[in-house]
């Protein structure tokens, strides 16, 4: 998810789009501009962000980060099956 600027943005993008490292400010700015172009072109926000990320980040979807939400979610499912 795109947080509002700051160091958090790079980290959030890394997790969200499975990047190897946190992108630098220049790349983040490029991604932001491209995303806004796509949105202006009528593409829905989430999809625009993803498309822009695939174009701009060379390491797009090269890593999978387990999130707490995923862990809790799958354990809740397992508990539901008892």
């Amino acid at each position: 998810m795109a947080t509002r600027g700051g160091a958090g943005a790079g980290h959030a993008l890394m997790i969200k789009y499975g990047l190897r490292t946190s992108p630098n400010d220049a790349l983040i700015a490029q991604w932001r501009i491209r995303t806004n172009q796509l949105i202006a072109g009528g593409i829905e926000g989430e999809r625009a962000g993803r498309t822009a990320a695939a174009e701009i980040f060379p390491d797009f979807k090269t890593h999978v980060y387990a999130s707490e939400a995923d862990d809790i979610s799958s354990l809740l499912d397992a508990a539901g099956n008892r």
Partner: peptide
Amino acid sequence: RQSRDATFVPKLVETAVVI
């Protein structure tokens, strides 16, 4: 600020949206 943006906000977003 750093902890807020890098650690807490992404987690709170997950909490609100998913958990």
